[in-house]
Design a protein around this nucleic acid. Structure first.
Lengths: 336, 336
DNA sequence: GCGCGTTTCTGCAACGTTGTAGTCTCAACC
DNA sequence: GGTTGAGACTACAACGTTGCAGAAACGCGC
């Protein structure tokens, strides 16, 4: 049987409420009493029962991180950053994967699990602007990523369009003029894919390079394997190209592998840049240029915003949109 | 305010206990009553309060996964597998990272967070046999990995020694005779590093190849970067070698990169095999041979064992040791 | 010495759920 | 016709904590 407030109170010779007060830093307690109670807590090894506390106070100290897929290195690294930021604030993190599309996302969002947590960090994948009303509840929530723009919740995002524009411009600045884009979602506007395609087109336009739809390679799921398969199909089409902007690193790495199998030199024949700056890009052959979206900054900002919402549940401050810094990281795959 | 049993009971015209009984599949309920209650639940959108349930029943439906580091692809993939296995059994997973060594591990294990969960999957990193007594409590727990052998808890492990022996034997069977081992922890016996080194030595002995300590490369932390740095130092020593067994894939990938920078051909000059079968190994250049430890099987077995312990808290069945299958995956880095 | 405010501490109720121990009804049995 | 037993349901008391209201003790000014 676990130690409870009752046991501590009995040993210290005070009421359980006084023990509770000591634990919760209630100011009006005599130093002598505080010491007695703290000694009893130490002696018994008392640990508060978080279920009871959560039931009574409505706060559990746990937040939920909803991401598509831990196998994707970007999300694994983001989850790592979120957990470190959360730990620094005394929070635990429940990770939920949602690889199953819109229906599953809504199910998880509305499921009983979410009752256990104080707030949600939600990396939106399948939901769109038209689903924003589903989020219009009182649960503290911060959105990561870019699906819903004018939703009712705070929003922390990398600068997708600007980052992708900078990546494309980087290849153009090297003199490449047939730059392919890997990872488009045809028809999409508000998601990462749509925004990154937009940035790609902006960069082309600024340089006066004509946009060629034949250079836009659709990839629905953004894993290594998908990038590899898409590149294999693209090469089979025989479209000439001398640059490649991968909308994330994993796809770019998969594609690099296929290009090299096909005898293409990187960066000689094709200069390549990815997006996300996952660790692997430093060790691939060749190492992969990329956009560093400052995952740590995303994570810290998101946790801070969420904590603010958790601590001021009645605040009707309007939803905020924060964008984090990014920078172009040049490596061997786009060496001059 | 959230909907409670009281609201449902009022609407359905029954007692709250009956609603509770319906929810918990108590058998003796008239179909008509059940329907009324279910209709009321649907109408109100009732969700049970998990804190209250957990307080009353002592079960939260959440398990904890303690791992060193999500940035390490092996653990990210293992976490993914665990979460899928847990989800299939209706459990949520709280992931805690413990990069901080023994003191931090014990702190987390004993912290109040652990009160919230029904059981713990613990991928032991820093704790040793001498710490086994710290685990001698009533919390359901399954150990992953290999630190503590005769501890009081169930234990699911990959076959470290056998896997590593098979990996080494694979390179020997290709005719390599100067096979280096990457990732040793000098002095360690019971950890993965010690066991894998043991398997390496067994394979050498079976083939009658002399064990040369100069070929054993120590690496304390098993990330890409550490593998790369260790290989750089090893190459600087000028020790001749024609094969490399990496004790995990990340290190092997970092080392491959460095070897190729140094002009070595893989597998021509050095045949390489790793351990873990992370996704990245399929797309590296060259693709990396490895040992597939069946992470899915590890995860499923561990979750099953844990659930068994959770459901039979009083059972004093002795601790079990289960080892999962593994297989050698030959790829380009050790092509014939 | 009295009133008033502050400090220090306590008792009680409540959070929403489930386990235990019932009550009541009705059918089956001798 | 009374006993038995199962079925269907309910009342009540917990689980361990914290918010609220209040009691006792104390200090201060007049």
């Amino acid at each position: 049987m676990a130690i409870t407030l009752h046991d501590v109170a009995r040993l210290a010779g005070v009421s359980i409420k006084t023990v509770s007060n000591v634990i919760n830093d209630y100011p009006h307690i005599r130093p002598a009493t505080r010491e007695k109670v703290e000694a009893a807590i130490d002696e018994l090894g008392y640990q508060p029962n978080l279920s009871a506390r959560s039931l009574r106070s409505g706060r559990s100290g746990v937040i939920s991180l909803l991401i598509p897929d831990l196998r994707n290195a970007y999300f694994a690294e983001l989850a790592d950053a979120v957990m470190r930021a959360a730990r620094a604030k005394g929070l635990s993190v429940i990770i939920e994967q949602m690889p199953g599309g819109k229906k599953e996302e809504l199910e998880i969002l509305r499921g009983p699990r979410m009752q256990l947590v104080d707030g949600i960090l939600y990396s939106v994948l399948a939901l769109g602007e038209e689903d924003a009303h589903h989020l219009d509840n009182s649960m503290p929530m911060v959105l990561l990523g870019d699906r819903i723009f004018h939703g009712p919740k705070d929003h922390v995002t990398m600068q997708n369009t600007e980052g992708s524009r900078a990546a494309t411009e980087h290849l153009l600045s090297l003199g490449r003029r047939r730059v392919a884009a890997l990872g488009a979602h045809p028809g999409e506007v508000v998601g990462s894919a749509g925004l990154r395609l937009d940035g790609y087109r902006q960069a082309l336009a600024e340089r006066g390079v004509e946009y060629d739809p034949a250079l836009v390679i659709p990839v629905m799921s953004w894993h290594r394997q998908d990038g590899a398969e898409a590149m294999r199909a693209f090469l089979a089409e025989g479209v000439a190209f001398d640059g490649l902007v991968g909308f994330n690193d994993s796809m770019a790495l998969g594609a690099m592998r296929v290009m090299q199998e096909a005898g293409l030199q990187i960066p000689g024949d094709v200069a390549v840049i990815g997006f996300d700056d996952i660790d692997e890009t430093r060790y691939s052959i060749p190492s992969l240029s990329t956009i560093d979206p400052s995952k740590d900054q995303i994570a810290e900002t998101a946790v801070d915003l969420l904590l603010e919402r958790i601590e001021n549940p009645d605040s009707d401050a309007p939803a905020r949109d924060l964008a984090t810094e990014f920078r172009v990281v040049q490596r061997e795959s786009s060496a001059n």
